[in-house]
């Protein structure tokens, strides 16, 4: 193990480490902690310049105020409406493409694979004008469907990379044995491969959920109003309205961050397995 296990060091070093851990963590999360405290600080404190002292009382009502007089709930709901279908769509498509690219040998296999990989890295701006035009032409501009459709297509690139590599690492003998038995291609996919890629489906689902929930650029390009905009774009426009009402901005930020954070803590193992794909040979 590297670095040397702390247990094998002197008691002084162990103690230093035990103290350094929480201190480092507090420093690391300082901006976040500041916002968390601000979110429960009463507005009267902020008006009187009590920015860092102990809040005069815990104003959890800030969280209710966020929902009052603002379409915050609608923004949150829109985020779910965009995110969940995107996760299902992108994962489903990539199970198919990943299977095709991992199992079959055909001309152009690697080429198609690398086009998916490369496409996944392109800057969004090169797609912006045409995708917006296309969405307008389909009558889907400023709709949740229009936004989700684009996300499904774009995320298929990353998901295909992931799925293809995952399926490729499965034992080949399984598929070969099935073929010898005369099992059809679709049956192989459905009954043999799909049950085995469940961990990959879980990992991709949490990752894509987070990516799409946190998307801001496409939300601003493809949607405009409170009826359709997800929380990221909504938060930005509320930030404009809540000028200097930092307790509201803070509470809104915390609420907007909650779903992906909850997803991360519930599915931590899968999340990290997804992110670190390829970090280990």
């Amino acid at each position: 193990m590297f670095p040397k296990p702390i247990q094998s060091m002197s008691p002084a070093a162990r103690l230093t480490y035990q103290i350094a851990l929480p201190v480092m963590l507090v420093v690391w999360l300082l901006p976040l902690l500041g916002v968390a405290v601000t979110s429960i600080r009463p507005s009267s404190d902020l008006a009187q310049g009590n920015y860092f002292g102990i809040p005069s009382y815990l104003a959890f009502s800030n969280y209710l105020d966020v929902f009052k007089n603002s379409p915050f709930a609608s923004y949150m709901l829109n985020s779910f409406k965009v995110t969940i279908p995107t996760v299902i769509g992108a994962v489903a498509l990539s199970c198919l493409t990943g299977f095709a690219l991992a199992v079959y040998k055909f001309k152009g296999n690697l080429l198609i694979f690398f086009i998916f990989v490369a496409g996944n890295f392109v800057p969004f701006q090169i797609l912006m004008v045409p995708v917006r035009e296309l969405t307008v032409k389909m009558g889907l501009y400023d709709t949740i469907t229009g936004l989700a459709l684009f996300h499904v297509a774009f995320q298929t690139g990353f998901c295909t990379l992931f799925m293809r590599n995952f399926i490729k690492a499965l034992p080949k003998e399984l598929i070969e044995a099935a073929r010898v038995e005369g099992v059809g291609e679709w049956q192989i996919f459905w009954h043999i491969v799909l049950p085995l890629v469940r961990p990959a489906i879980a990992a991709l689902s949490v990752l894509i959920f987070t990516f799409i929930w946190n998307d801001y650029f496409w939300a601003t390009v493809l949607t405009t109003g409170a009826d359709t905009q997800p929380i990221t774009a909504g938060l930005q426009s509320l930030n404009g309205q809540w000028v200097a009402a930092w307790q509201l901005v803070s509470a809104g930020s915390i609420l907007a961050a909650l779903p992906p954070v909850a997803m991360f803590f519930l599915m931590q193992k899968h999340f990290i397995a997804g992110l670190t794909l390829g970090a280990v040979k």
Binding site: S94, L96, F116, P130, V131, L134, G157
Partner: peptide, 19 residues
Amino acid sequence: PWLFLAPGVLMFLIYVLIP
């Protein structure tokens, strides 16, 4: 393989490659 690829490739073509 082409049937398995078709839906994903089509979406990617329409929304990424052609744009």
